[in-house]
Simulated scan of single mutants.
Amino acid sequence: MGGTAKIFKKCAPNGRVYVYLGKREFVQCDGATEPVSGIVYIQDWKDTLKGRKVYVQLVVTFRHGREEDETMGLSFKKELIIDRTEVNPAENKEGETKLQTVLKQKLGDGAVPFTLQFPELAPNSVLICSSEDEDPSKRTMGVFYDVRAHIADANDDYTGKKGSTVSMGIRKSQYAPNDIKQRSPTSTAEKGFVFGSGKIVLEANLDKEVFYHGQDIPLHVSLNNNSKKTVKSIQCTISQICELSMVNAHYSCKVARLESQDGCPLQSGGSLNRTFILKPLAQICQGARGLCLDASLSKVQDESNLASSSISETGNNNDLLGVIVSYSIKVKVLLGGMGGELETDIPFKLVHPRPDSLEMENLNKEKTSARSKQTDKRRRMFQGQDSVLNESFHTSQDN
Rank of each mutant, 00 (worst) to 15 (best):
T275Q: 02
T275Y: 05
P280M: 00
L281F: 12
L281N: 14
L281E: 12
A282Y: 01
A282M: 06
Q283T: 13
C285K: 07
C285Q: 09
Q286M: 14
G287V: 13
G287Y: 10
A288V: 14
G290Q: 03
L291S: 03
L293P: 02
A295Q: 07
A295V: 08
S296I: 00
L297E: 02
L297I: 08
K299Y: 01
Q301P: 01
Q301H: 14
Q301F: 10
D302N: 10
D302S: 09
D302M: 12
D302G: 11
S304D: 15
S304L: 15
S304R: 15
L306F: 07
S308C: 11
S310P: 03
I311W: 12
I311S: 03
S312R: 07
S312A: 12
E313Q: 05
T314K: 03
N316V: 08
D319P: 05
D319V: 05
L320N: 07
L320M: 06
L320D: 01
G322I: 00
I324L: 11
V325M: 05
S328L: 09
S328W: 08
I329R: 00
I329E: 11
K330A: 02
K330S: 00
V331L: 04
K332G: 02
K332P: 01
V333W: 02
L334H: 08
L334G: 03
L335W: 02
G337P: 01
M338V: 06
G340K: 03
G340S: 01
E341Q: 14
E341P: 02
L342D: 03
E343S: 15
T344Q: 03
T344L: 00
T344E: 05
D345C: 12
D345W: 13
P347M: 06
P347L: 06
P347A: 09
P347D: 07
K349D: 11
K349S: 13
L350T: 12
L350K: 08
L350Y: 04
H352I: 11
H352R: 15
P353S: 03
R354K: 11
R354G: 02
P355Q: 03
D356H: 10
S357F: 13
L358T: 15
L358F: 15
E359T: 11
E359N: 15
E359R: 13
M360W: 14
E361S: 14
N362M: 13
N362I: 13
L363T: 02
L363N: 08
